[in-house]
């Protein structure tokens, strides 16, 4: 009973859903991902808004806020560039998937995931160099929380990409069967954008 119940949400049913001439139904997973992105966007916006509001309350944010912390800008910029390149490779993989080119799809996704891991490596190295001590001050707490939220979204994005890559390996490629991968790529775009906003607010504007 349950198995059929689950599958009906995604797979077109025989009968009414395959009437010739009727417009194709929109993709449930893509739309669902869009809603998840909306929720995630508001979460990041809420956190960043709170961060900026607290910063605004200080008389001299540039001096009082960071309290001597130095931000390793080059590493964080390289990390962001890595992420931006991963967006290109993710879209390459999706494009290839829609054309049914499995080899390109898998190579594109593999490069995307490797770049994701490389990004985490660079960011964790940078944060370790900064030696942010949780609880030492307001900036430390807020920066840790906002950065953590964005990194968590990126982790979810990588997991989603990995899962949909496995679906592609299982044969879910082609023009009509690439929506699943497309949804994951869509979420990855959002995750990268969320990190870019966090990076700009917390580590550039500070």
């Amino acid at each position: 009973m349950s198995e059929t119940a689950v599958s009906t949400a995604e797979a077109p049913q025989p009968g009414r859903y395959t009437v010739p001439g009727l417009p194709p139904r929109p993709r449930s997973q893509l739309v669902g991902t869009g809603f998840a992105i909306a929720a995630g966007s508001m979460a990041v916006a809420g956190a960043l808004g709170h961060y900026m509001a607290r910063r605004h309350l200080l008389d001299d944010p540039g001096h009082d806020w960071l309290a001597g912390q130095s931000v390793p800008n080059p590493q964080l910029v390289y990390a962001l560039i890595t992420l931006l390149v991963s967006v290109v490779t993710a879209h390459w993989a999706h494009w290839a998937s829609r054309r049914g080119e499995r080899g390109h799809t898998w190579v594109g996704m593999a490069i995307t995931l490797v770049m994701g891991f490389a990004f985490f490596n660079m960011v964790m190295h940078s944060l370790n160099r900064m030696e942010i001590e949780l609880g030492a001050g307001e900036w430390e707490n807020l920066a840790f929380a906002v950065t953590g939220l964005s990194l968590a979204i990126l982790i979810v994005g990588m997991f989603y990409l990995g899962l949909m890559t496995l679906r592609s390996l299982g044969g879910s490629v082609g023009r009509d069967r690439s929506t699943l991968l497309g949804s994951a790529v869509f979420f990855w775009d959002f995750a990268v954008l969320a990190w870019a906003a966090t990076w700009y607010v917390v580590y550039v504007v500070k």
């Binding site: 995630g40 929380a145 953590g148």
Partner: peptide, 28 residues
């Protein structure tokens, strides 16, 4: 449903900040 998604999302972001600050020094 649409408005819940966008409005309750804000709460999630706030709760992350509140949780961290409450656990570590309660600076704000």
């Amino acid at each position: 449903a649409s408005m819940l998604v966008v409005s309750l999302g804000v709460v999630l972001g706030q709760l992350v900040l509140l949780y961290i600050d409450h656990g570590y020094g309660r600076h704000f």
